[in-house]
Design a protein around this nucleic acid. Structure first.
Lengths: 120, 120
DNA sequence: TTAACATCTGAACATCTGCTCAATCGTTTC
DNA sequence: GAAACGATTGAGCAGATGTTCAGATGTTAA
């Protein structure tokens, strides 16, 4: 080929696209909060803990035996979950029972599960 | 106090609690997949990208300018999002336009947003 | 008071993550 | 062809993350 047709690519206004997208993202505070919410459930250990607590309250050693990690590791994670208000603690003697404090978590898990099951 | 009442704590069957919870968690494969889904959206950068793409397709440089990171960083993230089937690519000349491939993501974000807004 | 038990805490560690930098590839334009 | 441009890739790095270990705290039982 000595000559080729000129390529005409679709016009694309970068300035406008960026401005519109910036609106869609919203303020960075809400983005950060959203990301944090997803982050809690992004660790398999924490996710297992939350899944287990959907049914009933559990003590630290039960969770540790259930997942297969140290009671220390469980305690660390529970502190984080408690700080984020996902879980509440009930003390009974030397034992500490944890249960879910958040009702919306189950919805999140349900939607995410549906999302996975409909993958090719 | 010279004498104190005997403490009677609520009975708790560890074996039974663990067995019940193990059922609630399910197989470890599904847990891993769930965690991975949440993990994609747990990074502020990726979350911003997804939020921006909810409205319209964007090219790499637009996203880079929008978020304030290198085009290289964007490209790295887009490869990940493409691998996970969250995004699809359309090439036009030297530009690469990305758009959302997954319809469920919006639901996930909506539920998570509601979850945040109803916090004390 | 001891001893045993459940939980919690801080430190150290290895691993993972997301970023930038530099170089490369593919396309378009001169 | 050469230069410009957009996108991609790999290496390297700093920071975050999850775990274990050792020790401390608090509670119950002997």
């Amino acid at each position: 080929m000595t000559r080729s047709k000129p390529h005409n690519h679709q016009a694309h206004n970068h300035q406008e696209a960026i401005r519109a997208a910036r609106k869609a993202i919203g303020d960075s505070d809400s983005v950060w909060g959203l990301a944090e919410t997803f982050k809690v459930l992004s660790d398999p250990t924490r996710l297992k803990i939350v899944l287990a607590l959907l049914k009933e309250e559990l003590c630290v050693l039960d969770i540790a035996a259930l997942i297969g990690i140290t009671d220390s590791a469980v305690s660390h994670q529970m502190r984080l979950l408690k700080t984020l208000r996902l879980v509440k603690q009930r003390k009974d003697g030397k034992m500490a029972f944890y249960s879910l404090e958040d009702e919306h978590i189950e919805d999140l898990i349900r939607v995410a599960t549906r999302h996975i099951s409909e993958k090719s």
